[in-house]
Design a protein around this nucleic acid. Structure first.
Length: 254
DNA sequence: ATGGCTTTTAAAAAAAGA
């Protein structure tokens, strides 16, 4: 079973890339973030024609998440039932005995802003809800754009980024809180190339210079860690014409 | 040395992303 996550930065613009990528990488599950589409505008027919069942939860202009699955989905949940949030950032479904959570963690904008406070509050509520999810579903996979680089290894220039949003200590502590529930960053289960990132700024030739961050993650509970055979970032779509600023991350489960 | 883009909304800038 292959599961993947990709922040597409507008599914309206990126649908051709998603379809092309799925042809090359027919994963069983693909979690999308930043669809930026209301549900009435969701390109359901095109994704179904590609062989996927789809759950989606969107809004105008911002945010929006979707889960694409080759296998039936049950118990679909939108948003965190424990946190009243107008922003559409969470979708969960059970697929082949695995509880899949697709998450688009708030960006936070800058340390000290209201958006940063929202990010930390959101993450605290996320942790509380995931504690219930993992208790009810031992096979738990939490995929998405976390907007947090876990470690300085995940930052192209740690000195320049020190203390900034996406790497600040409170954000990393919040991520560690999720891990403390019994989740593991599947990427670090394996030997990885140095300076592997999942996001590169559109500006400043970020991708060409590999000035990126690893902020998209697949966290797995212990039973899924035992089944995990690989986790990779696929940089290829970042080279395509008019790309998302994020690259997909794929985990392989036995 | 700095900033250099992309998307949306909406009709020219401005916000937001990360």
């Amino acid at each position: 079973m292959k599961i993947a996550t990709w922040n597409v930065n507008s599914l309206n613009v990126r649908l051709p890339h998603v379809l092309k990528w799925l042809e090359e990488h027919p994963v069983d599950v693909l979690c999308l973030q930043e669809t930026k589409l209301t549900d009435d505008k969701f390109p359901l027919a095109a994704l179904e024609a590609a062989g996927y069942q789809v759950a989606f939860s969107g809004q105008k202009t911002y945010n929006g998440v979707a889960i694409l699955s080759k296998l039936p989905m049950t118990d679909v949940v939108r948003n965190n039932p424990r946190y009243d949030d107008a922003q559409q950032r969470i979708l969960a479904a059970t697929i082949a005995g695995v509880r899949i959570v697709c998450a688009y963690v708030p960006n936070g904008q800058a340390v000290g802003t209201d958006k940063y406070a929202y990010k930390l509050a959101w993450l605290q509520a996320f942790e509380q809800w995931l504690a219930e999810e993992i208790a009810a579903n031992p096979n738990l996979a939490v995929l998405g754009d976390y907007n947090i680089a876990p470690d300085d290894r995940d930052v192209h220039d740690p000195a320049a980024w020190e203390g900034q949003v996406l790497v600040s200590e409170p954000e990393r502590a919040a991520l560690n809180g999720l891990l403390a529930l019994g989740l593991t960053d599947s990427f670090r289960l394996f030997e990885q190339p140095e300076k592997t990132f999942s996001w590169w700024d559109y500006r400043m030739l970020g991708f060409q210079k590999n000035k990126g961050l690893r902020i998209d993650h697949i966290l797995l509970s212990a039973p899924l860690v035992a089944r995990c055979e690989a986790c990779v970032v696929d940089r290829a779509p970042r080279k395509w014409e008019q790309p998302s600023d994020h690259a997909p991350v794929i985990a392989t489960l036995a």
